[in-house]
Design a protein around this nucleic acid. Structure first.
Lengths: 231, 231
DNA sequence: CAGAAAAGCTGACGCACATCATTTTTTGCA
DNA sequence: TGCAAAAAATGATGTGCGTCAGCTTTTCTG
């Protein structure tokens, strides 16, 4: 499980850079970024960083998906975010100068690049566009979490599941949603058994279809309704 | 209820500035800030900004306390943050360029200063220390909300109440906690009746004392225990 | 300071969801 | 390809907490 390998990808040719924090970089800045970063291949279910440790830099997902989660008192994961290719993770704790409050691990085989704290902070000093993107990103996530909190506090599990499926559909794009039932339960914030039952209901109602792990959205509009509207 | 009056306070003499976003300003910067800001007095339960509207600037609390909350589908408030004197609120939506996702209103008579969007963004451009404070603040709040989410998903109401009381004790400092039962319930994320019952239990157990609205913490350590440890 | 309105409190009741236990299916690896 | 382990599914059972309804105390306002 600790098996890692390197597989260099250049930032210049990185297809997903265009929707990352680095989207608005000039060619020179991209080349500088490329020079400073390193790449690592992570197999499915490998850990990228762990709650409690100190950040040494940020991680940019070149390929794959990553769950970002907190561990509750009884060791149960609460997934707070699922990051896809193009996203940069791990900057929050680095910027606030704290230990990680969350852990991150891969949901599938992934290629992840690393930029050290010094290099990243240097870029932030000299690059106003990076700063702005970052502030925007922090603000956006902060808003999303406020909604997440309200949903958790006020919606039923069924509504939250519908809501979560909509978020996941965005993340997975054309592909079917592909998560273990446990991960999905930990994203929705419920017990795995409850999640399985509700998923079954929704399948019987024709809202979704499932093939083992894979979930297909069949009735998008109805699910949005169920989720209590889009916010 | 729409009664407002003005009561100018100069930033130079503002005692709470030292723990605000503007803490590290030079005298010149403080004077510039003072020149650009306006002051307003809000009576208890007046609204400062409302979910769905567009931000025109940020609010700096000179005196008083403010609840920041989302409205759930059935109109129930979920309080996400309680801001005290010195805090700046309303910058999240402004920075992400979105509508407010949250509303804010006063919990007690308060004095609140306003800095327009243009002025604030100008300051951000020219003032690196403000930028850094802001990024730190955003990052810190983002971390806090991750914990909030995990607590909501995994802890019992009783545990969350204990946790919330600890947070509120920090906010209220020497004074007793002074919130309506409804607001407290909306902060904990539960029904008002449930909150009242649990509060009664804790009083009988000797953890707290109550005098009408006021709550006194009697056994801090035990409450931290109950909350499932400090995170 | 009186009367109304709002906030606080209490009890009864039901159900959404957690937990535990067991079986079935899928996955991963030798 | 076959077997062990992990994941998924199903059933049975209990309970934490929400909801509703009625009562009491506090607060607000003229």
């Amino acid at each position: 499980m600790v098996e890692k390998s390197h597989k260099h990808v250049s930032c210049e040719s990185c297809a997903v850079r265009t929707n990352s924090l680095f989207a608005h970089f000039t060619p020179d800045e991209v080349s500088e970024l490329n020079h400073h970063k390193s790449c690592q291949f992570y197999k499915k279910n490998q850990t990228i960083f762990v709650e409690g440790s100190f950040p040494r830099g940020v991680f940019c997902i070149n390929h794959g998906k990553v769950k970002v989660y907190a561990l509750g008192d009884e060791g149960k994961e609460q997934i707070v975010h699922i990051a896809k290719a193009g996203e940069v993770i791990g900057f929050r704790a680095m910027l606030s100068g704290e230990q990680y409050k969350l852990s991150a691990s891969t949901l599938e085989d992934s290629n992840v690049c690393f930029v050290s704290k010094d290099d990243f902070l240097n870029m932030m000093d000299t690059n106003a566009s990076l700063r702005n993107s970052l502030i925007q990103e922090l603000s956006k996530e902060l808003g999303e979490r406020a909604i997440f909190i309200t949903n958790l506090a006020q919606k039923t599990v069924r509504e939250r599941l519908a809501y979560s499926l909509m978020i996941l559909a965005d993340i997975y794009g054309d592909e079917p949603i592909n998560l273990s039932r446990e991960d999905l339960a930990n994203f929705v914030g419920t017990a795995t058994e409850t999640l399985i039952r509700l998923l079954k209901d929704m399948k019987e109602e024709g809202f979704i279809d499932t093939q083992t792990r894979k979930i297909f959205i069949l009735k998008r509009e109805e699910l949005i309704q169920l989720a209590g509207g889009h916010r």
